[in-house]
C-alpha cells in the first residue's frame, strides 16, 4: 500500500524545507496560511486512509460492529473469484463508457470553444447544470425515460413504430447510458481549457491551405490535443468508477460496480472492514490512473516549454 501512503509521507517531508527561491522568504503568516489548510486536509482526508487501511484488517462481529484485530478475512474475500470478476466488470464498463463519452464530448467541446459567447454561454450553463445534477435525479430521470410506463417506448408505440411498450431498465445498456450522462459534462469541462487555448490561426492556416473544416479537425485539432484526449479519457474513467447510484437504480446486481459494493457493504451489510478493503483497492486503482494522467500533463508541459525555447 505504498501507493496510498506516499502523499502523507511527502507532505511531512516538505514541511521543514518551505522557503522561497526567488524573492522574499515566506513570512510566518504565509506559512500559517499554507499549513492550516494542509493540516485540515491531512486530518480529514489523509488520516482516514490510514484508519481505513487499519480497519480493513479488523474483525467484523455480528450486529454491525467491528473489533480491533489483524485478520485477512476482508482481503481474502476481495481476492475471491466473485470480487475479481466484479472488479474487472467495473473496469470494463467504465472504460467503455469513458471511450464513448470522449468520442462525443471532444467534437462537441471543440465546436463549443469556437462559438460566439452569445451561443456559448447558454450551452456552458446547460453543461454545468447537468454536472451539478444529483446522481439520484439522473438515475431517476433515465429510469423514467427507459421504463415501460412513460418512456421512449411509449413514444415509439404512439408513432406506430413498436407494437407494445417495453422496459429497457434495469439492464447493461441503461447503466451505460446513465454513466455516460454523468460523465459527459465532466468530460467537456476537462477538455474545455485545452481546446479553447488552441490558436485560431492554426485552423485558419490549415483552411487557407485548402483543407476542408472536417480535414482540419482531424489533421490539426485532434493531433494537437492527443494528450488532452488521453487525459480526459482517464479522468472520465475514474469519475465513472465512482458512480454509485446509476448502477444500483438502472442495473441489476450483476451490473453493480465496485462503488456500489463498497457502500452496500458499509451500510446495508454493516461490514465496514470489507468496505474499507474494497475502498483501498479502488483508491490504488484510481491513484494509479490519476498518476498517469498527471505524468502525461507534465510531459506535455515540458514539451511545450521546449517548443517555446526553440
Amino acid at each position: 500500500m505504498t501507493v496510498v501512503e506516499t502523499p502523507a509521507d511527502t507532505v511531512e517531508l516538505t514541511e521543514p524545507v518551505i522557503h522561497d527561491e526567488d524573492g522574499p522568504g515566506m513570512s510566518w503568516s504565509g506559512r500559517i496560511m499554507l499549513m492550516v489548510p494542509t493540516l485540515v486536509l491531512a486530518v480529514f482526508f489523509l488520516g482516514p486512509f490510514a484508519l481505513m487501511l487499519r480497519t480493513s484488517f479488523y474483525r467484523r462481529i455480528q450486529g454491525g460492529f467491528y473489533e480491533p484485530a489483524f485478520v485477512l478475512e476482508s482481503w481474502s474475500r476481495l481476492g475471491s473469484d466473485f470480487y475479481i470478476d466484479r472488479a474487472l466488470f467495473s473496469l470494463r464498463i467504465c472504460l467503455f463508457v469513458a471511450a464513448v463519452t470522449v468520442m462525443f464530448a471532444f467534437p462537441f467541446t471543440w465546436f463549443l470553444t469556437r462559438m460566439k459567447a452569445r451561443y456559448q454561454v447558454p450551452l456552458l450553463i446547460m453543461i454545468l447544470a447537468a454536472l451539478t445534477l444529483s446522481e439520484v435525479i439522473v438515475a431517476f430521470a433515465w429510469d423514467l425515460i427507459l421504463g415501460r410506463a412513460s418512456g421512449i417506448s411509449n413514444i415509439m408505440v404512439w408513432l406506430g413504430l413498436m407494437s407494445e411498450p417495453q422496459s429497457y431498465t434495469p439492464g447493461y445498456w441503461a447503466v451505460c447510458i446513465g454513466l455516460a450522462y454523468i460523465a459527459f459534462p465532466y468530460c467537456v469541462l476537462t477538455l474545455y481549457p485545452a481546446l479553447s487555448r488552441i490558436d485560431r490561426e492554426l485552423t485558419e492556416a490549415s483552411e487557407t491551405l485548402g483543407a476542408s473544416p472536417l480535414r482540419t479537425f482531424f489533421n490539426v485539432v485532434v493531433p494537437l490535443s492527443r494528450t488532452n484526449l488521453v487525459a480526459a479519457f482517464l479522468m472520465v474513467f475514474v469519475f465513472t468508477l465512482g458512480s454509485y447510484i446509476i448502477g444500483q437504480v438502472l442495473g441489476r446486481p450483476e451490473h453493480w460496480t465496485l462503488s456500489v459494493f463498497i457502500s452496500d457493504q458499509a451500510t446495508y451489510n454493516s461490514n465496514v472492514p470489507f468496505a474499507a478493503a474494497i475502498a483501498m483497492f479502488l483508491t490504488a486503482v484510481s491513484l494509479a490512473i490519476v498518476g498517469v494522467t498527471t505524468w502525461l500533463g507534465s510531459r506535455q508541459g515540458r514539451a511545450r516549454q521546449k517548443a517555446v525555447a526553440v
Binding site: P7, T10, V11, T14, V17, I18, H19, D20, E21, M26, L34, P37, T38, L41, A42, F45, L46, P48, F49, L51, M52, M235, V238, F239, L241, G242, Y244, S259, I262, S263, A266, V272, A275, A276, A279, L282, T283, S286, L287, V290, T294
Partner: peptide, 25 residues
C-alpha cells in the same frame, strides 16, 4: 514554496478520487 505541486495535489485529490472513498474514510 518548494513542492507547491504536492500541496496542490493534496488539495485536488479529494475531488479526483471516487467520492465513495472519502465517504468510507
Amino acid at each position: 514554496p518548494r513542492f507547491s505541486g504536492v500541496f496542490m495535489a493534496l488539495g485536488v485529490l479529494p475531488f479526483m478520487l471516487p467520492p465513495v472513498i472519502s465517504a468510507v474514510g
